[in-house]
Structure formats: C-alpha cells, structure tokens
Design a protein around this nucleic acid. Structure first.
Lengths: 121, 121
DNA sequence: TGCCATACCTAGAACCTCGATGTAATATGG
DNA sequence: CCATATTACATCGAGGTTCTAGGTATGGCA
C-alpha cells in the first residue's frame, strides 16, 4: 500500500497513448516499444512487457493497429503499425489528454490567493 | 465497451490530486467539491459524488485530511481541510504529476521527423 | 403536497496497470 | 561444450481506482 514503487498512478490510458504515438511514424515491435518509452522519457515513464503486449493485442483487435511478422537473425518479431482508425484514435486520445492536462495544470498553478472565478448564482 | 461516456481514462489519481489541491487553502465539504471541480475546469473534468466521498474518507483515514462538522440551515455538512501530512502528500503527487505530464507532452509534441536521441549501443 | 436541490453515503462492476512467471532462440564467456 | 544473459514473445492473478446506480434525509418553492 505504501504508494507504488514504479509509476505512482496517473498512468491510466498512458501506455495506449504512447504506443499509438510511437507507432505513428515508425513501425516497431513490442520489446522495442518497452525500451523506447523508457529511453525517450529518461525513465520517467517505464512500462513493463506485461503492460505493452496486452495493449498491443487489444489495439489490434480493435483495428487500430495492424501487424506484420518479420524474422531477424532467426528471431521472430511482430511489427505493429497504426491503421487509419488507429490514427483517429490517437488524435482523440491526444486531444483528450491535452484538455485534461491543461485543466489540471490550471488548477495546480492558479488560485493560491484568489480564484477569480465569477459566481453567477 | 464503447469507450466511456464521462472522463475517458487518464483519471487515475486525479480526483485525489484535485481534492487535496482544493482543500489546501480553503476548507470545503464533499458536495461543494464536486461542483468546484466541475466549475473550475469548465466541466472538462467532472467527478461524481460516488468518487469524491470515498476519496475523502480514504484521505482522512490516512491522516491527510481532518474533518469538522458544521450545520448550516439545519443541513449538516462535513468540512475537510488538509493536515501537514496531507500537504506533503499533495506536494508529492503534484511533483509526480508534473513530471509525468512533461514527459508525455514531450513525446506527443516532439519527434515527428527525427527522434534526435543518441544511440550509444 | 409534490418536486427539486442540497448533502451525505455505499456497493457492485468494470477497467487498467503491475509484477511474476513461462517459453524459446541467440549471443557471450569460461 | 555448457551456463548465463539478452532478446522476444506471451499469459495470469492481484491490486487499486474510477464509474454508475442506488439509497437516505432535510429544506425551499410552487
């Protein structure tokens, strides 16, 4: 119960968002995605394989991703890329996240001495 | 399954964060908090009473909030305010959220043509 | 008297992340 | 040649949080 030792909440929906974003302009495979998220956020965000793979499967089942099987050095990889539906989904999620983040940021930043919100009622 | 009709994910930990933030400089009661979140975010974020009350109880149980009973016009209200521990908790959550939000924002914004990340290996 | 707003509360369901664990194949090193 | 680490996939159970719906009670208003 003492908080989380990894990502302490605030992670709901984030893996899906980041995965779609990563795959938007470059196809990648699961194991690569795990490291890419970790690397590109300077380890601020780190999701395990147990998170990434189910998300990939779910997105493919929903038609947001399509997969291609490849073999490199005898190792089989499954490359994922976004479909048109996935692109829309990313746009929606991205917009939603930005809206929420802006609202939260405003609440955290402003109003320490006055709310300055008109109260019509 | 067709998505959510309310807040579509990204809400993990947010009610707790906003409640602590609201109570930081002004004591409030549950019903008031529900409307305050809705009003001050222009309805971008709207949490129901079924979310707020359990969070309030949990925070009080953890010693992050203390409560005071008041009666106004025969209506009994329970005013909550943050303790010192609650203040620390807010600071932690706030810092965590800002870090995550910055990391996500960077991933959403940058790198459409080049990641520009050195690859030592 | 009936209705709506205020004000509290709880319970079940659903969802998602997290950690552990399992399977293989390849490269590395003694 | 054998043991270990790395790559690469996958699933399962646990845990925690939000969401929706429902329930109780008082006061103001028509």
């Amino acid at each position: 119960m003492p908080a989380r030792e990894t990502n302490p909440n605030f992670m709901n929906g984030v893996p899906e968002l980041l995965i779609l974003r990563l795959l938007e302009h470059e196809e990648m495979y699961g194991y690569e995605i795990v490291q890419a998220i970790r690397d590109r956020t300077d380890a601020v965000i780190a999701v395990g394989e147990g998170v990434v793979y189910p998300v990939l499967h779910g997105l493919e089942r929903d038609g947001a991703l399509k997969s291609r099987r490849g073999t490199v050095n005898g190792r089989s990889r499954i490359y994922y890329s976004v479909t048109r539906a996935g692109s829309r989904r990313l746009a929606d999620l991205s917009a939603t996240w930005k809206g929420l983040a802006a609202a939260i940021h405003k609440m955290l930043a402003g109003g320490q001495d006055g709310e300055a919100i008109q109260r019509t009622s």
